[in-house]
Amino acid sequence: MNGVHRSSSWHRRRRDALAGFAFTAPAMLHTLVFMLVPAGAALYFSFTEWDMISPAHWVGLRNYQEILFDSDLYPDFWKSVRVTALYALLSVPASLVTGFVQAYLIDLLRRGQSLYRLVFYLPVITAEAAVAAIWKWLYDPQFGLINAGLEVLGGTGPDWLGTPGVVIPALALIAAWQSGTAMLIFLAGLKGIPRTYYEAAEVDGANRWQQLGRITLPLLRPTTFYLVVTGVIAALQVFGIVYVLFGGNAGPERSGLSYVLHLYLFGYRNGAMGAASAMSVLLFVTVLLVTAAQFRLVPQQYEE
């Protein structure tokens, strides 16, 4: 009796396991073939000198050593680190603020929420090349709309994409404009805050600002934390917009040389795929450390 029972449940479990494998197989295979294997290969090639067209040969830690410490061979490596750090520092808060403001205002609307959601999300789904083309025009030092607007207000705008010190803020502004994803997630977060809290606050005589500061923002902490973590990860890997805006030249005095653009140029243009692989491993480790640090330092939950 007991034995029969055990064997049938064992069968069922085995069948479940098989079905489970069948369902997850495509995703697992995808992860294995397109992510884990290439990542493993990149780790291997990071210890080699390799130009993709001749056999790789083992050089041990030399790539890492030269990338980090030899500013003759890699004169712009640390510059690309600084550029990327500054970009993350500016673009993540900027897109969080615009995303939140958009979500907050949309949440106040009684009708037409879905229309505004769509409109503010459009920049995210617009092709990177089109985004770059639009902003190139907006930022044009002679005919750009932004500087024309500043002139009407009595000021003179900088040569946005032509002045080294202004390039990263200009890129952060584009990121702020493309904050549709943050907007959507904040909006979902806002919907998750029970109305009763606000009603109670109103009864207690709290005004809008007090409600925002005491209820909305604290209760959005998990949402904000999620957006900060994913935003920083994405910002550290920024590539598309700088590549389309500046190409391999990376902007005036290479002020738009993001880490991944630098890596890409070494791998695909300079024929130093081994060094590029080492850079990608360094980036991976950095992202891991930065994310771990955020889990420790950034508040994730609302605490009384």
């Binding site: 190139k136 030092p141 002679q142 032509g162 005036p252």
Partner: peptide, 14 residues
Amino acid sequence: RRITNSENSFHKGL
């Protein structure tokens, strides 16, 4: 550069 950085500044006569 403020003039030459404009897109196609030669083409537009600048």
